[in-house]
Design a protein around this nucleic acid. Structure first.
Lengths: 179, 179
DNA sequence: AACACCATGTAATCAGTTACATGATTAT
DNA sequence: ATAATCATGTAACTGATTACATGGTGTT
């Protein structure tokens, strides 16, 4: 039972779902490809944590709808009481910033512009999600609300930093030697 | 040449260093164990991107001091012009928050308290680093300043969120059914 | 006496990505 | 026509962690 397995159980504690949809839904929280999800679900099923029923479709491929079992719910509840791993972030941009004096200002600015656009997309996605949830009945769980807010806090800080960093880079270019 | 390899070259573009110290210094930006660093350095050396000289020590074990070559610097400069991968964050806490209704409020609060302490430690580390750099001569490069600021922006947002989330959880507990 | 730090390396395993494989439906 | 979406799966590979291995110095 690794973290991704618990992540799948966590999603399934809200609603039964197919492997395909679980793969799409877990992306923002724990990126994983279908080639990792499908074997894990089979493993969780052989361990008795989930079960599936085949749903035959005519217009689309048949699918397996997985649901969490009592054993799965108990495992999930126990996991909540265990110590939580520290977050891990890996960002190539950070490594590039570290040696940015080796490159041209134009390249660095281009990199930051691309990242700015990425964060803006993220923020827009979060805010559209927020609207969707606001109109939803029943209203979303506290957990969902906390996660949306966490994303918004993070992305807004990242956005602010990127804009600040771009100004610094431009200022640094204009005044390379302050005599 | 993977991202960690470029990360090592990035550190070495500032100063020559041992594998052991590179391992320690890269932790905040790209977590990696010594068992991953040492073989990569050997690989970078066989590719001509770095070279090492043995430094014999009496009180401590001998060490290899690696320095970047011209080929390494060129590779680094070219890397700066290439498209940058999007950042990847994996946080077990996020997956736990998603299914928090399955657990006790006390367990969730304990989890958030632990995370709060972690972010506070991070912030303190960043601010002590900042002081160290402020007294340093020569003053740190623009890259270093940008990274310190990025860390501070992120951690402060995370801290704010954690405190806000704890208040939400407490409020939710007191008023579970708002009739 | 037991543990942490310095310093390097390899072996085994686990986690994650890319590629291979299939095939119908719908949109551009 | 070409590509994207839905839907599942396996195989090969790369990336990352844990464990094995050694050994002196300094700290509690």
């Amino acid at each position: 039972m690794n973290t991704l397995s618990y992540g799948l159980l966590s999603l399934l504690s809200h609603a039964a779902d197919s492997g395909y949809d679980l793969m799409l839904k877990i992306q923002p929280f724990w990126p994983a490809k279908h080639s990792q999800i499908y074997p894990l679900l089979a493993q969780l099923e052989s361990g008795g944590y989930v079960q599936h029923k085949l749903v035959v479709q005519t217009d689309k491929p048949d699918k397996k709808i997985y649901s969490i079992t009592d054993k799965g719910l108990n495992a999930l509840r126990n996991w909540l009481t265990l110590p939580t791993d520290e977050p891990v972030t890996r960002d190539e941009l950070v490594l590039k910033i570290f040696c940015m004096e080796q490159g041209d200002t134009a390249d660095i600015l281009h990199m930051l512009e691309t990242r700015l656009a990425y964060y803006q997309d993220q923020l827009q996605w979060l805010q559209s999600k927020k609207e969707t949830y606001a109109q939803l009945n029943p209203s979303p769980s506290l957990g969902i609300i906390l996660l949306m807010q966490k994303g918004e806090f993070s992305v807004k800080a990242d956005l602010e930093w990127t804009q600040w960093a771009m100004r610094q880079v431009i200022a640094h270019e204009k005044e390379p030697n302050p005599d």
